[in-house]
Amino acid sequence: MSYHGVWTIAEENRGKIKEVSYELLARGRKLADKLGVDLASVLLGSNISESELKQLIYRGADKVYVVDAPELGNFIAENYSNVLVDLINKYKPEIIIAGATTSGRTLMPYVSVRVNAGLTADCTGLDIEEETKNLLQTRPAIGGNILATIKTPNNRPQMATVRVKSSRPAPIDKSRSGEIINIKLRQELIDGRVERIGFRKAEGETVGIQDADIVVAGGRGLKKGENFRLIRELAEKLGGVIGASRDAVDRGWVSYPHQVGLSGKTISPKLYIAIGISGAIQHLAGIKTADTVVAINSDPDAQIFKVSDFGIVGDLFEVIPLLNERLAKKGDK
């Protein structure tokens, strides 16, 4: 049997399908249509309702393969990998895409080794090459300074992780129909070595900076940790989350999960506001795929202005409080 069809790896959290699953369906639908094949979404998890599964169909899947079992309630690399490898061997998809999330970036390399597949990390562009029907995978590398297009000419499946938020989620179309295929978990696929024994919520903001539409970030220009309250206040008013430069994190002003840049997170929000951040190349690497960048900095020569859509050269301690005030007034209306 030859390899056929496009798969997306959906993700769920306590029975609710994560948004990234719909972003992948938007990507997958385009690829499947170009190839003239079915698009299937694969979901491993626990306690997923029929109505949640239908969402995947409304968003573009022709088929949904679901393995629902208590043992799959949490992501454990070995278990998820064993189950996915089993499905791949049975159904032989030609393309598999997953989110470049903590689980996607763990699962996919583990699986790609097992099935001798090529894997490309953190893609921001996917397409089908006309002549060969190969998957063309485009990704930023070397700190976003180059865009490399990669293909997997001989091995199947062709696998890729896709940067979160790099495409809009597929729209809901309730007229769509598709097939939900329930697959029973075979117990021998549960590895059982690694166990999740607890969970601790991140302090402060609950939304990860990679999932946020608006990120307001502060850097060394804030001078003191306590001044980060200006950033927090603005983020709150705009309905965004806080980010930080490496400087701010290394000084202990904000915790590491908020760090944007090469040694932190690469993000693609709709709006990124950089405050008191000069824009070291390592920082800019983290925001290359942001839709709109706004910068506020006192140094007119700061690098950050080169990548800004709107820049304010001024004293952040004058600008931000007034901006917060104006937003508060508007909010009261």
């Binding site: 090529g118 976003g144 080169k306 990548v307």
Partner: peptide, 24 residues
């Protein structure tokens, strides 16, 4: 021995033609 091949290298747009305003 590598399943993947780099087939093209592009240079992404680095700068944006933004509006820069002085607020003094």
């Amino acid at each position: 021995g590598s399943p993947t091949r780099v087939v093209k290298i592009g240079h992404p747009r680095v700068t944006r033609n933004g509006t820069i305003v002085k607020a003094t």
